[in-house]
Amino acid sequence: MFAFVIHTAIIFTIFLMLAVGCNFIVGYGGLFTIGHGAFYALGAYAAGLLSTKLGLGFWPGLAAGGVVAAAVGGALAISLSTVDEDYFSLATFGFGIVTFTVLMNWFSVTNGALGIAGIPAPTLFGLEIESGVPYLALVVVAAVLCYGGVWLLIRSPFGRVLQAMRDEAAGVAACGRNVVWLKSVCFAIGSFIAGVAGVLYAHYATYIDPTSFTVEVSILSLSMAVVGGLGTLAGPLLGAVVVVLAPELLRFVDLPAGSAGLIRQGIYGGLLVLTLAIRPAGLLGRRTRGG
């Protein structure tokens, strides 16, 4: 029971990081990505491959996973800079699915559906960070750093220009700012956080396969950000509680064994519909955009 609570807390915190990164890209940058899970996957696979094939340690892997995700994310945003908003979203969605397909089928590198096993637990000053409370501490510290980083960023001059661009891209461009660059840096930062979350997941699970990185992860990330309220600081936290934690709590309720998973799934969907139908701007959102 205690172990289960810790496990849930670790997964929750990792998903919270996805929500924070996604909210940064969508809520503050105005770039509606539906491919956030791809960068989570890139981080996890980078860490998994580097540690099992090259014997690289956790910390270099953490940096590498974040940087790989950020670099690919930045490049994707640049290459899509001329595309209409709707198509931008679609292309990110497509990117998520292509990434999944590659993980599944590029057998010689990713080991396909068999996945990568034996990813070692991280060490700190020579001591192993054990699964359980120590690992929870690690992910909480990482999540707090990411949350704090975003908090600082949105108050910085860069953050203010970013939000101005979200609201009026043409105006910001007319002020001589490079909008393409702004967008890609924003996308890269959000992807970096997703990549770090992926590394943390890989070293926690010690085994990764493509089924943990389906398009549903992208949609879950987005749902958390949207339900909480795009472009609000506390939004991702609240969104993660509603979308991830609430269905999880149903484990403590007696449900018919055969369809318990389906009922949880239905409730997740129902919460999503209900929240957005009642508050289209999310629980904390004060205003609606594009409407």
């Binding site: 949609i219 749902s223 949207v226 799934q265 239905g266 969907g269 919460l271 999503l272 957005l276 139908a277």
Partner: peptide
Amino acid sequence: IGSLGFAIV
């Protein structure tokens, strides 16, 4: 996303 929620349900 609302329609996606309905699809899930």
